[in-house]
Simulated scan of single mutants.
Amino acid sequence: MVSFAEPDVFGGRPRRLRVGPRAAAAAACLVLGLGLIGGAVTGSWLTGDGAEAGARSAFGTAGTLWHNVPVDELFPPTVQGTGAGPGGADRTWTRIAVAPDSGCAHAFDPLLRKALAPVGCRRLLRATYTDSTQSHVTTVGLLFTKADPAGMSALAARFRDERLDRRADLMPRPYAARGTAAAGFGDPQRAAWTISVLPDAPVVAYAVSGWADGRTVDSPQPAADAVRSGATTAPAQAGLGNEAQGLSDRIERRLRQTVGTATENAA
């Protein structure tokens, strides 16, 4: 609240208060500023504008991308991985197969399917890439869930707190396509993997990598461990952790960019 003091009195009569041009201008600016601020706040209340409304809109938009966006936008034919290889080396991945969009019935090992069950499975999109030498193959997947923001946040917290993304019995399955470098990329060939539960979108992103020659792997390793300096396992030495982590990061980044663009266009 703003109150004005009583006017000065001289000789029992109030003195006229003279307002200079600068004071009048300042008062006008104050009134105008308060009006603008009030209008903006009122507009925010009326339109639901703000960070919370924007987050809700982006979350809803993300859940529709599996059928609203061409596959090339989610899984580009070529992905550049600047600095993604061991020691900061550059990587280039070429898409060699795209799986038909499907459910999740046979896409995950039983324990991983059970861990993901609380968020449901709306649709699963997968693609398999190879590196420029065709020595490695990597399947990247986007699981679109049925969960709301609270459900995704709860699953993300569980994966983080229980370190479920580091358990070898919760590895994603690869997508092997006949007639490609990934034809022999089955469950026994899995070498490194990463899983990312997105709390701000109804999506679980993952990647799993292996050798293109079909060799089996006795001790697969989480990508986060395989990319650490000094890691001496076979997947780490071959850079397969970098393959899974680097490609998954870029597909996830592209997903977020697509969500942002689609949300702006819908506004």
Score class of each variant (00 low, 15 high):
Met1Ile: 15
Met1Asp: 15
Phe4Ser: 03
Ala5Cys: 11
Glu6Ala: 12
Glu6Val: 12
Asp8Met: 14
Val9Ile: 15
Phe10Trp: 14
Phe10Gln: 12
Gly11Glu: 11
Gly11Cys: 04
Gly12Gln: 11
Arg13Lys: 15
Arg15Trp: 06
Val19Asn: 05
Val19Met: 09
Ala24Val: 01
Ala25Trp: 11
Ala25His: 06
Ala26Tyr: 15
Ala28Met: 07
Leu34Lys: 03
Leu36Phe: 14
Gly38Met: 06
Gly39Asp: 15
Val41Gly: 08
Val41Cys: 07
Trp45Cys: 03
Trp45His: 08
Leu46Arg: 14
Asp49Thr: 11
Gly50Thr: 08
Gly54Leu: 12
Ala55Tyr: 02
Ala55Met: 10
Ser57Tyr: 04
Phe59Ile: 06
Thr61Glu: 12
Thr64Ser: 14
Leu65Pro: 05
Trp66His: 14
Trp66Arg: 03
His67Gly: 03
Asp72Pro: 00
Leu74Thr: 02
Leu74Glu: 14
Phe75Asp: 03
Pro77Ile: 04
Thr78His: 14
Thr78Ala: 08
Gln80His: 13
Ala84Ile: 02
Asp90Val: 02
Thr92Ile: 12
Thr92Gln: 07
Thr94Asn: 11
Ile96Phe: 00
Ala97Arg: 05
Asp101Ser: 13
Gly103Phe: 08
Gly103Lys: 11
His106Gly: 06
Pro110Arg: 10
Leu111Thr: 02
Leu111Ser: 11
Leu111Asn: 10
Leu112Ile: 02
Arg113Gly: 09
Lys114Glu: 15
Gly120Asn: 04
Cys121Pro: 00
Arg126His: 05
Arg126Ile: 02
Tyr129Ile: 04
Tyr129Leu: 04
Thr130Arg: 08
Thr130Asp: 01
Thr130Cys: 01
Asp131Gly: 02
Gln134Asn: 14
Val140Gly: 03
Phe144Val: 06
Thr145Arg: 04
Thr145Asp: 05
Lys146Gly: 07
Ala147His: 03
Ala150Met: 06
Ser153Gln: 13
Ser153Tyr: 01
Ala154Ser: 09
Leu155Gly: 00
Leu155Met: 05
Ala156Asn: 02
Arg158Trp: 10
Arg160Phe: 12
Asp161Glu: 07
Asp161Gln: 09
Arg163Trp: 07
Arg167Gln: 12
Arg167Glu: 12
Leu170Ala: 03
Pro174Thr: 00
Pro174Gln: 03
Pro174Leu: 00
Tyr175Leu: 02
Arg178Val: 15
Ala182Asn: 09
Ala183Phe: 00
Ala183Trp: 07
Phe185Ala: 06
Asp187Asn: 14
Arg190Ala: 03
Ala192Asp: 14
Trp193Ile: 00
Ile195Ala: 05
Ile195Cys: 02
Pro199Trp: 05
Asp200Arg: 15
Ala201Pro: 10
Ala201Phe: 02
Val204Arg: 02
Ala205Trp: 04
Ala205Arg: 01
Ala207Ile: 11
Ser209Asn: 08
Ser209Lys: 07
Gly210Met: 06
Thr216Ile: 09
Val217Tyr: 07
Pro220Val: 04
Arg228Tyr: 10
Gly230Gln: 12
Thr232Ser: 09
Ala234Glu: 08
Gln237Trp: 09
Gln237Leu: 13
Gly239Leu: 04
Gly241Phe: 01
Asn242Gln: 10
Glu243Lys: 01
Ala244Ser: 13
Leu247His: 00
Ser248Glu: 11
Ser248His: 05
Glu252Asn: 01
Glu252His: 09
Arg253Ile: 03
Arg254Lys: 05
Thr258Val: 06
Ala262Trp: 15
Ala262Gly: 10
Glu264Trp: 13
